[in-house]
Design a binder for these strands. Sequence first.
DNA 1: TTAAACTTTCAATAATTATTGAAAGTTTAA
DNA 2: TTAAACTTTCAATAATTATTGAAAGTTTAA
Lengths: 168, 168
Amino acid sequence: MKLAEAKNQFIQAWGTLGSKWGINRTMAQLHALLMVSPDPLSTEDLMAELNISRGNVNMNIRELMDWGLVEKMHKPGDRKEYFSAEKDIWKITKQVAKERKKRELEPIIKVLEQVSSVEGDKKDRNVKAFVDGISGIKRMANNADKTLETMVKAEENWFFGGILKLFK
Amino acid sequence: MKLAEAKNQFIQAWGTLGSKWGINRTMAQLHALLMVSPDPLSTEDLMAELNISRGNVNMNIRELMDWGLVEKMHKPGDRKEYFSAEKDIWKITKQVAKERKKRELEPIIKVLEQVSSVEGDKKDRNVKAFVDGISGIKRMANNADKTLETMVKAEENWFFGGILKLFK
DNA sequence: TTAAACTTTCAATAATTATTGAAAGTTTAA
DNA sequence: TTAAACTTTCAATAATTATTGAAAGTTTAA
């Protein structure tokens, strides 16, 4: 397989994967492209490679920066902005974990706390089912939260190294 | 907070969370509703609770069954079908892990295998960056795959019990 | 068999989300 | 200052995804 073809297949696949995880397809494709580029790319480069508009590049690149996965660079003597992605997959994973924890896990935990203060007769099967259901979900959410927290602080080592042995 | 309100808040929040994870909002809401219902619900019940059409309930409930999170039940002497959700959050988590592994992780691993056989001069910085990038991602993907595999087979215990200590 | 009670399908439509591209805004060199 | 080179915004539009609801299909009791 030629580089151009391989690159393209990877970009497409990464876009598809992203869209299944609630990430804008184009944003995922930009990320894919930058992950396998040796040098930072300009808006023009990105527009050309993915065949998308300037506005689209601008918005999605900005969101990638919000996620902390891409950063802006400057080349000396050049007014254009260039973008480059973090290449270390462990750092990327930790960063995504950190963001999703903050954006999604923490908010749902708040809601779970709130709704678990439901009033009503504990003998009412409806109340009981609700309280039991929520309490299980809350337990899982808190556990996931602590796990991600630990992961964010952790070294690559425990994940790529020994974690599997620990599960046994 | 009254039960009805709490239930509703939970359903909304679960729907929002689902939509951020690439899951149809209605599907997530149906799931939420069934998770906190003491008894199985009929299509009519679901239509009424969420204010959605028959077709919508039918499609999304079917997808929940595909994911292995909901099952069909029958009440003796009643022709209607009733639906109930798995309530054990650990089983739910394992099931989701299992499905996403099969649906998303395995396909991307295949693509990664394919594209890493890219031909070309290893001294070309473009080839090098591509190969290096892919190999890191592949390593992560394989690790995640093994981790999920282990999780699917594991007991509730290691997750709710000792896992956090192991990370330290 | 039949017809009532149910479920499923699917074309039409609505709702949401993504994208464009030009105008407005900003920065920099001279 | 100015104007060229750039970036950002955002209303209009396109594309995608979700939803409806009625028609078609299926099952069951009698």
